[in-house]
Design a protein around this nucleic acid. Structure first.
Lengths: 268, 268
DNA sequence: ATGCGATACTTTACGCCATAAGGAGATGTC
DNA sequence: GACATCTCCTTATGGCGTAAAGTATCGCAT
């Protein structure tokens, strides 16, 4: 039950994110470190994955490492910066395997000789969207990290770059390209948030999504006998729906994405 | 710094939302009520608008009404249900003025005789999107209310219905219609969240968005001299950007929405 | 070998949060 | 006047992030 809306200290986060180059421990006095930034970030992700953002506390992370909350402050400036690091590490799953994938020096829109199928970029963008969607669902708490003033970690930028790479053959002008990127990202993010919230609610309450909807619909009908008169289009649309809520999320994802790609194609 | 992820009690929220018909106070003993659900909801919205979701506490709401936190529990079951009511009241701004606007009994896609311009629905949907965007920016905390398992209050449903009404002339089949609704809603919501977060960050830190970006860019360049090599497309796109961050949000809104509408048009 | 400074980690404390429990005072009906 | 009912209060519980200050441990210079 907690949102996150303010980032941590810029300098500290960025330094940690972009690899303050771990100096070796020779010639340093004091007890040898029992933890590391990496270990703390991993523990934080483990806690957030398992218990959700609301359960992510310095105490909980420390406990998972056999320490107190305060022990973490030796390695990490505070909770906000830890969250920044967790965010980037989660997104890193998307580009970890990719071996740089050189973008080949072409002006945008131009296709290499022996042209691949024109719809190549559709597949590429679809792959990007599905990857991001899956990643968000693996780490739903990422969706609760503020989007404005992003952390600008290497992984986040790489995800952005990979979308631009996928969209490149579509040959959009910069203005439209920015619009397309925004629309695609927000769409994936929003749908992932909906699905994730539904799962979280089901887990927290023990009530399956389908049962919940059935219950609410019944109650609603009971409270507003004139429902179909007040919301005729909604009623009509609802009557054509089928499958579980999770299925309909997937369907919305597919058809919504197709619609977006049609829009991109139209703008070429 | 707090998220909201779990809804309140279904029965209680729904009853309050759909107008438990205020019975008159004749024949009831005890001191006469000094507050009302409406007043509490208004106070809650005032607090959340002014101080943000993180500052919305039962204490704060009570204080604004000259009471303690616990006094509110006489009228409202708990914070979750209060938030449900606030959410629906905020969205009600969008449809409050509209006089029912009868949807006219036409099969979807068919246009009335003396056909209005074909692009009518584009304007209608654009108007819907802009209204929702503006409403979200007036009440940014609404964006932190979970989307799954929605409250299903009258205002929320009315907003949905009005989008369906606007989209009707486009004549999409139900499957595509669901995709379009999802894409449009998530897009508006996501962009509004970005803008709202940026404003909140500026207000909280006292650092204007432009300055913040300039600072981060400089630091980033300093930390990663090979930035332009690692993220060539990003670099290229960034170089074409102009105007304030707020302006670029608006531009992204316009072009992204146009792209979505092109997609809808293509699917007709 | 000893002592010192740096480092890792702990305990304690502060002011927040939602809300359960129970009590005080006001107001109505009988 | 007695009593039930209702509003609103005080208090208490167990959580949160982190400031402050204390303790234990290690490496190095002497």
């Amino acid at each position: 039950m907690t949102v996150y809306a303010g980032q941590g200290d810029a300098r500290r986060s960025l330094a940690l994110l972009w690899g303050a180059p771990e100096q070796p421990r020779t010639g340093r006095s004091g007890p040898r470190p029992g933890l590391s930034v990496d270990a703390i970030v991993s523990a934080g992700i483990a806690v957030a994955d398992a218990e959700g953002m609301a359960a992510l506390s310095m105490r909980a992370v420390g406990e998972r490492l056999g320490r107190t909350a305060m022990a973490l402050y030796t390695y990490v400036p505070g909770k906000a910066e830890l969250l920044d690091l967790m965010h980037d590490r989660a997104l890193a799953e998307l580009t970890a395997g990719l071996p740089a994938e050189p973008p080949a020096d072409l002006p945008p829109g131009e296709l290499p000789a022996g042209a691949p199928p024109v719809d190549d970029w559709r597949e590429a963008v679809t792959g990007w969207a599905e990857g991001l969607y899956a990643c968000y669902l693996r780490h739903p708490w990422v969706l609760q990290v503020s989007q404005a003033r992003p952390v600008l970690g290497p992984a986040e930028l790489a995800v952005m770059e990979s979308l631009l790479l996928a969209l490149r053959p579509a040959g959009l002008d910069p203005r439209r390209l920015r619009g397309a990127v925004a629309a695609l990202w927000q769409f994936v993010r929003g749908l992932a948030a909906t699905t994730a919230d539904a799962r979280a609610a089901a887990a927290a309450t023990g009530v399956a999504d389908e049962d919940w909807w059935a219950d609410r619909s019944a109650r609603l009908a009971e409270l507003t006998p004139d429902f179909t008169d007040r919301f005729p289009l909604l009623t009509a649309l609802q009557s054509t729906a089928g499958g579980s809520p999770e299925d309909s999320h997937r369907e919305a994802f597919r058809t919504g994405l197709a619609l977006l790609l049609d829009g991109v194609a139209a703008a070429r």
